[in-house]
Design a protein around this nucleic acid. Structure first.
Lengths: 245, 245
DNA sequence: GGAAACTATTTTGCATTCATTTTTTGTCCT
DNA sequence: AGGACAAAAAATGAATGCAAAATAGTTTCC
């Protein structure tokens, strides 16, 4: 084969008519956002080589702004840049994933601790509502809804921490393990689900009491358990995964 | 004034004969390391504009690799890139500092928790030795030695966490507040010193018992107190600062 | 027939060049 | 003299060009 990217036909986030709320004046910024999404959403196979020329054609730009974006993505850990050998989508080993999950756990743990210092009753009520919504998804076995609401809960906690630097770092790490996180939740182990729901109850409880240190512990454990589930799911994905085409 | 960088004569980290153990094949990588150090070490005034041309001359390269490095530094939060207006050293507001200190606190807190899972007796002994060394500096009022040993202790804890992703993130945030951290320690409030020493004793104690959750709390509080001291020092730096030349 | 070696093509890294935008300088008018 | 407008100078953003390295392809030799 000559090209190493199997052309999926995906145009790398079409101009989008600026449907999203984001706007970027400079070209390299625009490219950065598009490429990041493209990588995070898994449109490029793991470890696949990505010739600059091809990306340039796909994006309709020259190599200069593209290369700048690639450098940034490499710094973010999404891709890796081998000297004189181009960019590859970063392949995450099991160890890498464990580490990243742990850092996420630490960040959320921190978020919880900080949130307890500043969160309003209204915000807690909002999270409670999300919790009940998620419980509904749980009862209906709605994986997708459950996953999304779960994300929103965790994001709400991070938002309540009132710390932009934390939010940015959190978003960064979340992006790096996004694919795995999602697929991990598909491990429809009934037991883990029930466990996760109980943990979420404990999270809410600690949050209501503004028990920062305790919430920190509970959140860390929750994420640790999620990590274990995710890793298990990855090492033996065949047991209940749909037959791969 | 025509040039916005007051020429300090600092050649932006001379080739160094590769004195350090690091080596970077590519030019942009080399530039990135040099520029990062140059910024982190405070050789460029806060908020000063940094004309690309001037940096190119200083570094003896063309603009292309320089701009790539600048993009990465901007992503790291060390500088900010204003569209069509060049790069500026990122000015940190008090709020920014508070946030960054809190994230550092969270990361170290996480490091402590993880360290308890994997640290060896030998590593603990090593940290104990550093602790005694630091105590010596404390008794001799040796600020510089105290600061350095203190850094090494915290770095040892992070290293004991056995998590490269955490280590990288920690280094990143540490770089962003390096200047302030250092100057903050110069707040030679005798009382805070004594307090910090006591906190370090508690850290060691929890570490010896591998009490992860407890160590997490103690470390967070320790860093929180350091944050308070640093912010105080910045808002009223005149009280015991040496007369500025 | 297979492996090593040599050549050709592609790809990366960096410098240079071109087009805009911004900033500065100079001049004119009130 | 001071401010406003205009032109010049400089700086940024992106494209192109060129040398070096890597990959692919072909040939040669055992």
């Amino acid at each position: 084969m000559k090209s190493t990217i199997p052309d999926t036909g995906v145009p790398i986030a079409p101009p989008a008519g600026n449907g999203g709320d984001r706007q970027e004046a400079s070209l390299h910024g625009e490219i950065l956002l598009r490429l990041r999404d493209h990588v995070v959403e898994g449109n490029i196979p793991d470890g696949a080589r990505v010739p600059e020329r091809q990306l340039c054609e796909m994006l309709g730009i020259s190599r200069t702004p593209l290369r700048e974006a690639l450098k940034v993505l490499a710094a973010e850990g999404l891709i890796e840049l081998l000297p004189n050998r181009g960019a590859r989508v970063r392949q995450l080993s099991q160890r890498d994933l464990e580490e990243l999950f742990d850092v996420m756990a630490g960040l959320e743990s921190l978020a919880g601790r900080l949130a307890c210092e500043a969160i309003t009753d209204e915000e807690i009520t909002g999270i409670e509502h999300l919790h009940y919504e998620m419980y509904g998804h749980y009862l209906h076995r709605d994986m997708h809804g459950y996953f999304q609401t779960n994300q929103r809960i965790h994001e709400s906690i991070v938002a309540a921490a009132r710390n932009e630097a934390l939010k940015t770092a959190y978003a960064n790490f979340a992006g790096r393990i996004r694919r795995v996180r999602y697929s991990a939740n598909f491990a429809r182990k009934r037991q883990r689900w029930a466990e996760a729901m109980r943990e979420h109850e404990a999270i809410l409880d600690a949050l209501r009491r503004r028990a920062g240190s305790e919430l920190s512990d509970v959140l860390f454990q929750h994420l640790r358990n999620k990590r274990t589930a995710a890793i298990e799911h990855l090492t033996e994905p065949q047991e209940d995964a749909p037959a791969s085409p």
